[in-house]
Simulated assay, not measured.
Amino acid sequence: MKTYLLAASLVVGLFFSPLHAEQKKVLGPWDVHYIAFDSTMIDAKVAQSYQLQRSKYQAVLNISVLNSSDQKAQQVRISGTATDLTQKQIELSFREVREGDAIYYLAQVPVHDQKHLNFKLDIWQGTENQKLEFSQVFYID
């Protein structure tokens, strides 16, 4: 858990609030931590170093997969989609980021005010395959 917090704090610039708190689901042998947030929450220098576009119309999805038994970061493959209420589907492209022992995966998705997105992700490691599904509404200031 310690490595995930270090990695997450680097990505979100130490910003966590009740509206943007990380979430966790236990999927098979993994604790999968996930958070989606407005990309303007990231400091400009941090965004540049991670090659993330800062815009109130771009959200960032951050996924971290830990072994449930020893909490070690897992190298996985992630693919998935974000689908809005009109059934428009957006393919997500994840990039792996390593910070010391931490491994996490970042993707960006376009958003607008009150955009409701349903995320469906496939996570693989060897023969292990798990599905993560969640929904989130994004608000633009």
Rank of each mutant, 00 (worst) to 15 (best):
M1T: 08
M1C: 12
K2F: 13
L5Q: 12
L5E: 14
L6I: 15
A8Y: 14
A8S: 14
S9Y: 14
S9G: 13
L10S: 07
V12R: 11
G13W: 06
G13V: 12
L14S: 15
F16H: 08
F16Q: 13
S17V: 06
P18M: 03
P18K: 11
L19C: 05
H20A: 13
E22N: 00
Q23F: 04
K24Q: 15
K24T: 14
K25V: 03
K25W: 00
V26P: 00
W30I: 09
D31I: 05
V32N: 05
Y34K: 10
A36K: 02
F37S: 04
D38Q: 13
S39H: 00
T40K: 11
I42C: 12
A44V: 03
K45H: 02
K45N: 09
V46L: 11
A47Q: 11
A47F: 07
Q48N: 12
S49M: 11
S49H: 02
S49D: 09
Q51F: 15
L52Q: 10
Q53R: 08
S55Q: 08
S55D: 05
K56S: 09
Q58C: 08
A59I: 04
V60I: 14
L61S: 07
N62L: 12
N62M: 14
I63Y: 12
I63E: 00
L66A: 09
S68L: 11
S68P: 07
S69T: 15
Q71D: 12
A73Q: 11
Q74M: 08
Q74S: 08
Q74A: 03
Q75C: 02
Q75I: 05
V76I: 03
V76H: 10
S79I: 06
S79N: 07
S79F: 04
G80W: 05
T81M: 00
T83C: 03
T83N: 03
D84T: 03
T86P: 03
T86E: 13
T86M: 14
Q87Y: 07
Q87L: 05
Q87I: 06
I90A: 06
I90C: 02
I90L: 11
L92K: 04
L92C: 03
F94W: 06
R95C: 11
V97M: 08
V97G: 07
E99K: 14
E99W: 15
G100K: 03
D101Y: 10
D101V: 07
D101K: 14
D101C: 09
A102G: 15
Y104G: 14
L106A: 01
A107W: 00
Q108F: 01
P110N: 04
V111C: 11
V111H: 10
V111N: 02
D113W: 10
D113C: 05
Q114N: 10
K115T: 10
K115E: 13
K115W: 01
K115N: 05
H116D: 14
H116T: 10
L117Y: 00
D122W: 01
D122Y: 03
D122H: 00
I123V: 04
I123A: 03
W124S: 04
G126P: 05
G126R: 00
N129D: 10
Q130G: 12
Q130V: 12
K131C: 06
Q136W: 00
F138K: 07
Y139H: 14
I140A: 00
D141N: 07
